[in-house]
Design a protein around this nucleic acid. Structure first.
Length: 278
DNA sequence: TCCGTATCCTGAACGC
DNA sequence: TGCGTTCAGGATACGG
């Protein structure tokens, strides 16, 4: 499941492979995946050059000439890869971009959750998720004062709060569980009852963890691989995600898995206590 | 306005 | 062995 580090890895790989490639034609095989509706989507991209690929949170932004941008979200299992024309197309390939050099940029997505939307470059705010996107989790962009402010203002359970892209960009289920374990915060913790020093610990953990994951080309949980010959190896660093029933690395207590806000949540009941009255 | 929940979608894992 | 059920989850629409 691609989170920010995986999407960044995909962005870099795709940039190497298809920057300056020209699109001859587009084939949409699953109509709900794109907007505007077919055939407008295909027609708009015909003859366009991929000038650059940007990223914001978990969104990929393909920048074409003529002020055209394709906003692409991989959701759970979306993947891009580049294949020679005529090679076997799998049943989960839903969009094919035929390039002028004889290659094909293909989008494959088992669960069909991914979406692509064409907009005018500069109109990113028409995508609600992009408009409300919180700061990127880096030392420069995720300020401690901002973190304190949003934590104080909200009275929410921390797990869904951190998954909310409008608060901090790019965190998904794996990294939220991992960073909460690292900073020893319970996933059921109320945001407004978390002390300042724990907010600082959490900020450090988020920035470190995302940074390490980007260097390691992302996680490889379930289906994720970069499709560019570099499988993610961050899974080797996971401490709690998927470790239910195993001893906590820090204290030996058995890691538990519970549901929080519909999401599978892994934590150590001993070294991640709830702070406050709850 | 804020927050929680159902929904989309398919394959793997599980239970009988 | 084979069938039916449950689970996984990011963003979003919707309701309280």
């Amino acid at each position: 499941m691609p989170e920010l580090p995986e999407v960044e890895t995909v962005r870099r790989g795709l940039t190497n492979l298809v920057k300056n490639a020209v699109i001859n034609s587009v084939e949409v095989r699953y109509l709900k995946m794109v907007s505007p509706e077919s055939p407008l989507f295909e027609q708009a991209l015909q003859g366009k050059t991929i000038e650059r690929i940007d990223r914001r949170g978990k969104y990929l932004l393909f920048r074409f000439n003529d002020h055209l941008t394709m906003v692409s979200h991989l959701r759970m299992e979306g993947k891009y890869d580049v294949q020679p024309e005529g090679s076997v197309v799998t049943k989960h390939t839903h969009v094919i971009f035929h390039l002028s050099d004889g290659r094909e940029l293909r989008y494959t997505d088992t669960r069909k959750f991914g979406r692509m939307r064409l907009i005018n470059t500069g109109d990113e705010s028409v995508i609600p998720g992009l408009k409300a996107m919180g700061p990127e989790p880096t030392e420069k962009t995720l300020k401690l004062d901002y973190m304190k402010k949003i934590f104080r203002k909200s009275h929410r359970t921390i797990k869904p709060f951190l998954l909310d892209q409008s608060k901090i960009a790019g965190l998904g289920n794996i990294y939220v569980d991992e960073t909460l374990w690292l900073s020893q915060i319970n996933p059921l913790q109320q945001t407004d009852e978390l002390p300042d020093e724990k907010i600082a610990d959490l900020r450090d953990a988020i920035i470190d963890e995302i940074g390490i994951a980007i260097k390691g080309h992302g996680t490889t949980v379930h289906s994720f691989s970069t499709a560019f010959g570099e499988a993610g190896n961050f899974q080797n660093h996971l401490h709690v995600y998927g470790k239910q029933g195993e001893p906590c690395e820090r204290c030996g207590t058995t890691i538990e898995k519970i549901k929080v806000a519909q999401r599978g949540t892994h934590f150590c009941p001993h070294c991640q206590p709830i702070i406050g009255d709850k």
